[in-house]
Amino acid sequence: MGEIVLAAAASHAPGITGYPDRAGEQGSRFMAGMEQIHQAFEEAQPDVIIEICNEHFVNFHVNNMPALCIGTGEYNVGPMEPEAWLHIPRTNVPGHPEFANAIVKEAYNAGFDLSFSERLLLDHGTVVPLHFFTPNMDIPVIPILVNSIAEPMPLPQRMYRLGKLISQVIATRPKGERVAVIGTGGISHWVGTPEMGRINVDFDERFLESIERGQGEAIADWTPEQIGQGGNGAHEIRNWIAVMGAVADAKGEVTTYEPVVEWVTGSGAVIWKL
């Protein structure tokens, strides 16, 4: 069987790489937390990364919005943002079609009708955390995009169960296959609303403390209204909840949390050492 050798989650605000200097010492502390996860990747040497992130109207618009879409292609392309702005060169990030299709098939068997795409455009959401964790972008990545941007959105409980499904598929994989599971996005932030720039520190701390106590299933019971206390951008914590399902509520370790107003995001990162 395969095994999850590492799990992690991190915010993916474009300012993290786009304009890191504006965050000053907060930014430096955040980068140090990301570097801890990078080192863990170096030690764990995963063969493949399953990355749960949300769509940002890059691949899909409201005329065709899947709740969940997995990238099954030989590669996916990103970031779509200009290098001059995001400071990450565009590249073909390798995929893992055989593994990704195994997830799709098992999902169908389990009652999850995942959408799939053989060529996804990646954006800051997937690429910013990868830039820190695997700077060479040479480890195959299976992206799973979530609709957490347009109502109605999949329930957090559904995301938790998706994570459990992913762990079940990993258990069926060839012996010795080493898998990293990561989730990106959040934590509190307001996107394109009058409150843009606001950060709910209490919300973020409550969320991170629950992760440190291994209470992912309880977080998955948060209502949309509760999640909304962290702004419309907080709905991206669905991506982290899937990771918590995959690691069966193992206790996470917060490597950094900084409420960075300049990045308009409560910016955090967590690692699960398994």
């Binding site: 009058p194 409150e195 720039g197 950060i199 919300f203 909304g228 107003v261």
Partner: peptide
């Protein structure tokens, strides 16, 4: 189209951290 709560308040006045 945003049915959830957003804590409207004084962010516009510079109070960014809740």
């Amino acid at each position: 189209l945003l049915p959830t709560v957003w804590f409207p308040g004084p962010a516009r006045n510079g109070d960014y951290l809740i």
